[in-house]
Write a protein that binds this DNA or RNA. Structure first.
Lengths: 235, 235
DNA sequence: CGGAACATTGATTGTGGTCAACTGCTGTGG
DNA sequence: CCACAGCAGTTGACCACAATCAATGTTCCG
C-alpha cells in the first residue's frame, strides 16, 4: 500500500532533516512514491528490506558479536535515509525499532535506477548519508572519550531533538534504559545510576512513564561537552 | 598543480575502494581532474579545504572536546572520499594525517555542481559515503562492546588491509601507538600492554620500527570478533 | 491477581585509568 | 665524538570506577 503523503502536512516537522525532503520537487516525489511501501513498526520489530526512510519513532542499527554481545551502533530519526547494503558485508547490521513509529521501505534496486536519473534525489541522498556519517563520527568520539554521565547527558540532548516541542525542556524519553545502555556502550545499571545522579544534582526531574523535565539546560550541555572528566581524587 | 594521474598505474591498488574509482568513465575523470589539487602530507598535517580524496597514507578525522580530550573518530584509507562539511556544524571534525601520504583536495562547490551533472560521479560518491558510514558503525559497535585486547586485534586487522602485500602476515604498523589509542578510546599505556599480551600469547611478533608479523591469524580474527569478553573469574 | 519484563538499588570485584619512573631513539649543538 | 634534551614508548604500582552479581521495586500485560 503506497502512501501518497509520506510526510503528512498535519504533522509538525520535527527536524531539519525532514525539511530537506520537503525541498524535493513534486516530480521527484512522484517517482519515489511509486517505489515506496509504508508500514508501522512496534518495538522490537526488524523491518524487512534494505533501504528505508524514517517517518517517525526511534529506530536503531544493531550489530551482534559472535558471543552474543550486541550494541545499537547508530540511531535513526525521522527524515533519515538508511541503506543497509554493504559492498563488503562482513558485519551485517540490522534495523530495529526502539520506539514505535512509521517507516517507508524503498525498493532498493529501483531507487538505484532513480538515483542515476534524478539528480535532485541523488544530491539529497548524498547529503543525508553524509550527515548520518558525521553523526556516527560524533558518536564514535563520544564513546571513545566520554564518561557514562557525560554520555547520558549527550544522549538526552540528542533524543530531545526529535521531539516537536523542542523549545521546551520537557519531553518523554521514548527509548528504554536497556536500549540506551546498548547505544552508549554501558550497562543498564549504570544508566539507572546516571539518571539518579542527574536527578540528585538538579539537572533534571523524571516523572513516571519516561517523562523528563530538564531543569538546568546550560549545565546539562556543559556536562555533555566534557564537564566531568575522569580523574583521580588526589586533593 | 593538477595531477593528471591521481591513481598512478604503477602503484598497486591496495583496496577494493580504489577499484571503485577505476570504474569511473574517462570523461568523468577529466571533469574531476579540473577541480583537483594534489598534495603530500606529513604526519600531523591538517590539510586545508573541505573535500578530499585519499590516495595513500593513513589519515584520521579528529574531534576535540572543550576540556582538551581528543579522539580519532574515523580512519580514512586510500580510495576514501571525505566531505567534512556539515549542515549543522556543532562539532567540527578536522582531517589529520597520521601516516605520511598523498591526498587530493577537491573544490567543494565545483564538486557539488559536478554531482548534479554527472550521475556516475554522484553514484560513486554516494556508495563511498555509505561504505564509510557503515565502517563508522562498525567502529561504534567495537567501541561500545569490545575489550581493549579485542579492540587492538580489530585495529590490527583493519590496518593490515591497507597494505599491498595483504596476503602476507607481515606489515609495518605505520600509525603511532598514541594515535591508535585515540582511535580505540583507550590510553597509550593500555595499547602497550595489549601488544605485550598479544606477543606473549603468540598471536604476533613485533620487530623494531613498527614491523608486525602475525603468527596466528585465525586466533587473532577470533579474538577480534569477541574472543575475550569481560567476565568475572567465578570458577 | 499473578507473572513477566523492565528498572532500580546495594555490595563486591576486576580492570583500565592515572601517575611516575625508566628505556630507547633521534636530532642538535658544542 | 659525546652530552644533552626531547619525545615516543614501555613498565610498574596503585586506585577509582564501571561491570558484575544479587535482590528488590515497579510497571505492564493477560
Amino acid at each position: 500500500m503506497n502512501d501518497h503523503q509520506p510526510f503528512d502536512a498535519n504533522v509538525d516537522i520535527p527536524d531539519e532533516t525532514l525539511q530537506a525532503w520537503s525541498r524535493l520537487p513534486a516530480e521527484s516525489w512522484a517517482a519515489l512514491d511509486a517505489i515506496i511501501v509504508a508500514s508501522d513498526a512496534e518495538r522490537g520489530h526488524h523491518p524487512a528490506g534494505e533501504t528505508f526512510l524514517i517517518v517517525s519513532g526511534i529506530h536503531g542499527i544493531m550489530r551482534e558479536m559472535a558471543d552474543g554481545r550486541q550494541s545499537v551502533c547508530a540511531l535513526a530519526f525521522p527524515g533519515d535515509y538508511l541503506d543497509m547494503r554493504r559492498v563488503e558485508h562482513e558485519q551485517e547490521g540490522s534495523l530495529v525499532t526502539l520506539a514505535p513509529g512509521r517507516l517507508l521501505e524503498i525498493d532498493a534496486e529501483r531507487l538505484d535506477a532513480l538515483i542515476v536519473q534524478d539528480s535532485d534525489i541523488a544530491d539529497l541522498l548524498l547529503t543525508l548519508t553524509r550527515e548520518a556519517f558525521a553523526r556516527s563520527q560524533d558518536h564514535c568520539a563520544d564513546l571513545a572519550t566520554k564518561t557514562p554521565l557525560e554520555l547520558l547527558a549527550s544522549a538526552l540532548l540528542e533524543l530531545r531533538r526529535q521531539h516537536i516541542e523542542r523549545e521546551q525542556d520537557q519531553f518523554t524519553l521514548a527509548i528504554r534504559r536497556g536500549d540506551l545502555a546498548q547505544y552508549l556502550g554501558i550497562k543498564p545499571e549504570t544508566v539507572s545510576r546516571g539518571f539518579r545522579q542527574l536527578r540528585t544534582e538538579g539537572f533534571l526531574d523524571a516523572g513516571g512513564n519516561g517523562q523528563i523535565s530538564i531543569l538546568n539546560m546550560p549545565g546539562l550541555r556543559m556536562l555533555a561537552s566534557g564537564g566531568r572528566p575522569r580523574r583521580s581524587t588526589r586533593s
